[in-house]
Amino acid sequence: MTASMKTARPKDQIRAAYYDQLGGGFGKKVRARVHWIVRQAKGEHILDIGCSGGVVPILLGREGKHVVGIDVLPEAIIEAKQALLEEPTSVKEKVELHEANVMTYTPDIQFDTVLMTEVLEHIGEPERFIARAVSFIAPEGRLVITVPFGVNDYADHKRTYYLNQLLEQLTPFGKIETIERIDKWLGVTIQVYPEPREGRAILPAEVEWLEDAFEEVERLHLATILDLKRKQQNLERKVQRLGEQTEELAHIRAESLRHEQQLQEQHEQYKMLEEQYAALLDRFEGSLVTNLELLEANASWKSKYRSLARSKLGKVVVRYWKFRRQLKQHRSRR
């Protein structure tokens, strides 16, 4: 599940994570996402763009589907082909793996489903990649997209995704079928239109505002957590250097305990924020899985969004901006 463009970035370790080589907890989350992707692959002929180590193509091949996996990174295809060698002949006959760039790849057939998972966040112009992927899909076929949800600032990530921006990019190309939050990822499927449509079905402005504000709050919490962790590490190094100099050691240990408590509080507040946004998505998930053009004409739908400012998340955002104003005023008086 890597982006289909040549960039120097850390090796994708989806295969290692899937088989618990990076820890059981992380493996469980990765399997939940991978299995969701597999369930969305409808039809007999599947294309996996950015197939990485080949986990998804091999799983689909075991189900008897004809799968083509492509990735721009040669080391990813080498890993995928090595994994395929361990499969029975019945699976090998179903799976093709190629080093290829999606923008120049020219398949011989159209596919029932195209998978493009954990790709868009790496791309400067995602609409070009979506349009290219859609061109490979048979009439009434399906495009499956997943992206990291919220702040996920790896060096090669070019954007942060919440729901609104992702839907804005996808709705010209097809009808939204499924929207699902899978831990720290968003998954969307669309049934593609014969031709892209003009205009963009965008969620009401209240949601866009809340998502922008949520990103501000999320980044504030993450920055505070990182700062506290750095301070805690510095204190631990001081403790190691001091040895048995009891008076100063006692002071540092007290400060260390205070930082630990602050760090715990920040983690709890951040978790609460994530839960509130998750509740927001869950609240509207069922309604979103339909034609967004109809939703825009539905007054009751719009009124639900107008009520978001009074939600728990909205109240958190209001408190945050009050804090920002107070902090600014305090600094201006200094």
Rank of each mutant, 00 (worst) to 15 (best):
T7P: 01
P10Y: 04
Q13G: 02
I14K: 02
I14P: 01
A17C: 09
A17G: 08
A17S: 15
Q21Y: 06
Q21T: 02
G23K: 06
G24N: 08
G25N: 15
F26R: 10
G27W: 03
K29Q: 10
K29P: 04
V30P: 03
R31V: 11
R31Q: 10
R33P: 07
R33T: 13
V34H: 03
Q40L: 05
Q40C: 13
K42A: 12
G43R: 00
H45G: 03
I58M: 04
I58A: 05
G64T: 02
H66E: 11
V67R: 01
I70Q: 05
D71E: 04
V72Y: 12
I77A: 03
I78C: 01
E79A: 09
Q82H: 13
L84V: 00
L84E: 06
L85D: 07
K92V: 00
K94F: 01
V95S: 06
N101L: 05
M103S: 05
M103T: 10
I109A: 06
F111E: 03
E118L: 01
E121D: 05
I123N: 11
I123L: 13
G124F: 02
E127V: 11
R128T: 13
R128H: 09
I130E: 03
R132W: 00
R132N: 05
A133N: 07
P139H: 12
P139C: 08
E140H: 12
E140G: 05
G141A: 08
L143I: 03
V144F: 03
V144L: 04
V147D: 05
P148E: 04
F149C: 09
N152F: 15
K158H: 08
R159G: 08
Q165D: 12
L167Y: 12
L167D: 05
E168Q: 11
E168R: 08
F173E: 01
F173H: 13
G174V: 01
I176Y: 09
D183H: 13
K184D: 14
T189F: 07
Y193D: 12
E195R: 06
P196C: 05
P196N: 07
A201F: 10
L203E: 06
V207L: 15
E211P: 00
F214E: 07
F214W: 15
L220R: 11
A223S: 14
A223N: 14
L226H: 15
K229F: 00
K231W: 02
N234H: 11
E236A: 10
K238H: 10
Q240L: 12
L242S: 10
Q245N: 12
T246G: 01
T246Y: 10
A250H: 07
A254N: 03
S256E: 12
E260Y: 07
E260S: 10
E260P: 00
E268T: 14
E268G: 02
Q269K: 13
E274A: 09
E275V: 07
Y277P: 00
A278E: 13
L280Y: 14
D282R: 14
D282L: 04
R283C: 03
L288D: 06
L292F: 13
L294R: 11
L294Y: 10
L294E: 08
A297F: 09
A299Y: 01
K302T: 04
S303A: 13
S303E: 15
K304F: 07
S307R: 14
L308T: 13
R310D: 12
R310V: 00
V316Q: 05
V317R: 03
R319A: 10
W321D: 02
F323N: 07
F323L: 13
R324A: 08
R324L: 15
Q326S: 07
K328S: 11
R331Y: 11
